[in-house]
Structure formats: C-alpha cells, structure tokens
Simulated assay, not measured.
Amino acid sequence: MAVAAVTTKPLHTPLKKRRLPAGRPREWYVSHNRRLKAMRLAIALLDAGVYHPSSASNARIRTAAERLAVHPPSDTTCRMVRALIRYGR
C-alpha cells in the first residue's frame, strides 16, 4: 500500500520587512503606522463579515484589535477603518 508524502512547504514566501526611511518628520511615521494599523483592522473585519461601515462600531473595531493582539485603536484610527471598509466594497 502506497503512502502519500506530506510536504510542509509554505504556500508563499513572507515579505521581508524593510526599515522606514530616515529623516522624515515624526508626524509622517505616526500617520504611516496609523494607516497600516487601520488597513490590518479593516481586512480583519472584512474577513469576519463586516461589509458596511455602519456595522463597524468603535467597540467592534477594538475587539478585532484585541483578537489581532494590537493596541486598541484611537477614535481617529477607527474612523480610518470605517473609511477603508466604505471604499473596499
């Protein structure tokens, strides 16, 4: 009886992280990281079935952040998440 071999190769190679460019004002780094966080949260909510910004309350977004082990987002970041969901449909 033949036994199938199981391969454990990953389906894709993970992206390598690159350093952020030096010499920018602090506000640029803050807004850059805020956009990345909002994007991660919007993707998680879309995967969870939240397709309308009206159903993405601050509490629901912060619960998603907790599941992703991310610091709770500010009100500004929550607004950005809703905007991304709005334009992602």
Rank of each mutant, 00 (worst) to 15 (best):
M1Q: 08
M1C: 10
M1S: 14
M1D: 12
A4C: 09
A5L: 14
A5Y: 10
A5P: 02
V6N: 00
V6F: 02
T7W: 02
T7A: 03
T8F: 15
K9W: 08
P10H: 03
P10K: 02
P10D: 05
L11W: 10
H12C: 10
T13N: 05
T13D: 07
L15N: 11
L15A: 12
K16W: 08
K17I: 15
R19Y: 09
P21T: 02
P21F: 03
P21Y: 01
P21G: 02
A22G: 00
A22K: 04
G23V: 15
G23K: 11
R24H: 04
P25K: 08
P25T: 01
R26I: 09
E27S: 15
W28E: 12
Y29R: 11
Y29D: 14
V30K: 10
H32A: 12
H32P: 00
N33P: 01
N33W: 10
R34I: 08
R35D: 14
L36F: 11
L36D: 05
K37E: 13
A38K: 00
M39D: 12
M39I: 06
R40Q: 15
R40W: 09
R40N: 12
L41I: 02
A42I: 04
A42E: 05
A42V: 03
I43V: 07
I43K: 03
A44F: 01
A44Y: 03
A44Q: 05
L45Q: 02
L45V: 00
L46H: 09
L46W: 10
L46V: 01
L46A: 14
D47Q: 12
G49N: 10
G49D: 10
V50M: 10
V50H: 02
Y51Q: 14
H52Q: 14
H52T: 13
P53A: 13
P53Y: 03
S54P: 02
S54D: 15
S54G: 11
S54H: 12
S55N: 09
S55A: 11
S55G: 10
S55K: 07
S55M: 07
A56I: 00
A56F: 03
S57A: 11
S57C: 06
S57N: 09
S57P: 04
N58I: 04
N58Y: 04
A59C: 06
R60K: 15
R60T: 13
I61W: 01
R62I: 10
R62Y: 05
R62P: 02
R62L: 12
R62A: 14
R62C: 11
T63N: 15
L68I: 04
L68N: 05
V70L: 13
V70H: 02
H71W: 09
P72Q: 11
P72G: 08
P72V: 10
P72E: 13
S74D: 15
S74H: 06
D75Y: 14
D75Q: 13
T76C: 03
C78E: 02
C78L: 07
C78I: 01
R79S: 11
R79Y: 05
M80V: 08
M80W: 02
R82L: 07
A83E: 05
A83G: 06
A83M: 01
L84Q: 07
I85N: 00
I85F: 07
I85K: 00
I85L: 12
R86A: 14
R86D: 07
R86Q: 08
Y87L: 09
G88M: 08
G88D: 07
G88F: 06
R89D: 12
